[in-house]
Amino acid sequence: MCEFATLESPYSMPVALHGDLDLDLTDPEAQTRSRALNQFLAGVELKAFKIAQAALRHEDDALDAVQDAMLQLARAYAGRPPQEWKPLFYRILENRIRDMQRRRTVRGRVMAWLPVRGEDEGEEPDPIAQAPSPDPQPARRLELEQAMTALERSLGGLPRRQRQAFLLRTLEGMDVAQTALAMGCSEGSVKTHYFRALRALRAELGDFHL
């Protein structure tokens, strides 16, 4: 049983339950901790956004999820040892993503009763987006673009736990123990989810070469 297994949903837990962990910036030690936290968040925010985007497939929702996770970590867990921040942060983020997916499911059921309207309806095409790229290697760029799109699409089709294990390991570079803490499961489960994700992605994408 991992250490954070009891923190089923840190996102939805009242802050007071975690104790007084606010950073008092008049205290030099708290200033150091605040700087360390800033550095940590700056280091994970882009990857966290990508992970949230892969799960939610919506940019604004992904931004909201990352922002909420940052806030929750800073408010409730800033007092914890910095080496615990990463698994905690991703644990909070995953809970937030799951909350948003649940809400979206409910919203989808309600919206199914309303008349359909396309998202891009009435929008003019963006001339900047349509301008030719100044990239000196457009063919290479296009190749990467296509591979990225294919990978992201395949990731989006994976079951939640498999996608989580794959992204935490491959993109965030977390080891099994950290991934287990972040996912709130055993190391054995992480290995199983990761292996299944790899097998599914390989089956869909083949051994793509770059």
Binding site: L37, N38, L41, R75
Partner: peptide, 9 residues
């Protein structure tokens, strides 16, 4: 978002 989180903390 990061700065807002740090300020909130």
């Amino acid at each position: 978002a990061r700065h807002a989180a740090l300020e909130a903390a």
